[in-house]
Simulated scan of single mutants.
Amino acid sequence: MTATAAAPEETIGMMVKRWRERRRRSQLDLSLAAEMSTRHLSYIETGRSNPSPAMIERICDELDVPLRERNRFHLAAGFAPAYRERPLTDLGAAQDAVRAVLAGMEHHPAVAVNVHWDLLAANQAMEAFLRDLPGELRRPPVNMLRATLHPDGLAARIMNLGQWRSHVVRRVRRQLERTAADGLAALLAELEAYGPPSPTTGPAADGTTADDLVVPLRMATPYGDLALLYTATVFGSPRDVTLDEIAIETFFPADQATAQVLRSLADLRTAPRAETPT
């Protein structure tokens, strides 16, 4: 079992207050939702009362606190961490589920990432997109956002880079606000430091069309221009820190031309190799 201890100067009361304010909840609102008195919650926040493990869980449930941070709550209150943290390879049926989803989406690029968008697993379709990245960006752990937006990465191929970069930066900000995960602020600053791309002109400068349902990722490839949309899949009711932070992101074709290219590439990967004459 692993967990990062809370900073020595931060008490359990300070943590409760910080997360309550992060979620923009009043003491009255939170106390009613967690079925406790406002006075008890006030005593917890000021250090006059120490919550039980069960009370910590009720408060964290109402504030949607991630499991990694919940372990810090328990440690700050003087209790053992409540949740284990195991590598993906030690997650049994959950690992099998991740592998099954990635394999089942083999016609579409798909990847499993953690809370920082570090690569945990990818299917062959996604590996084909990452194959030409420079060695520095392929050094483990591969960060999918860095690989996408770094000037030496896939950014040179993204046709609507300004639009996609803005979308990614907003998404990282939301992730940071929701999770307060260590390292996310540094990643956000790095992505912002890449700077906006050179301005483009013309009716399609932002990469959108009137028929777009979502913000597409538009990429130029040797096989033609691709328009991709993505979905994110997470596990319901996780009880492990690693599992709580895993998301499977799958890219689907946003138009028929892209669908045809992805099918053709999948057929090339699965076609039997011709035997070499001896």
Rank of each mutant, 00 (worst) to 15 (best):
A155R: 01
S52F: 10
Q95I: 01
I44Y: 03
D244E: 08
G78I: 02
R273K: 09
A7M: 15
A82H: 01
R48M: 09
F235M: 09
L268Y: 07
S49A: 06
E57I: 05
R99F: 06
A189D: 15
A185V: 06
A186P: 04
A181Q: 03
I248T: 08
T276A: 05
A5T: 07
P140N: 09
V234P: 08
R84K: 14
M15T: 09
F129G: 14
L30E: 00
F235R: 09
A220Q: 15
A205T: 04
G162Y: 03
A121D: 13
W164H: 14
A180H: 09
Y223P: 10
T4Y: 10
A247T: 13
E45L: 05
L149Q: 03
V111D: 08
A181R: 10
H40V: 10
F252E: 03
F235V: 12
M159C: 13
R20T: 07
P199R: 00
R48K: 14
T201W: 05
P196N: 12
R72L: 13
I59A: 06
A121L: 12
S166Y: 07
L120D: 02
R170N: 09
F73Q: 01
R170K: 07
P272T: 02
M55Y: 06
P196S: 12
V111P: 08
A33M: 13
N114D: 14
D118P: 10
H150N: 06
R131Y: 13
P53N: 12
M36F: 04
R68M: 13
D61M: 15
I12R: 03
L28F: 10
I158C: 11
V113M: 00
T201H: 05
R58N: 14
D225Y: 08
A147H: 09
A97G: 01
A94H: 15
H108K: 01
V16G: 02
L161E: 02
R20H: 03
R24L: 13
A6W: 11
L119V: 08
D182R: 10
A122W: 12
Q163M: 12
A247P: 10
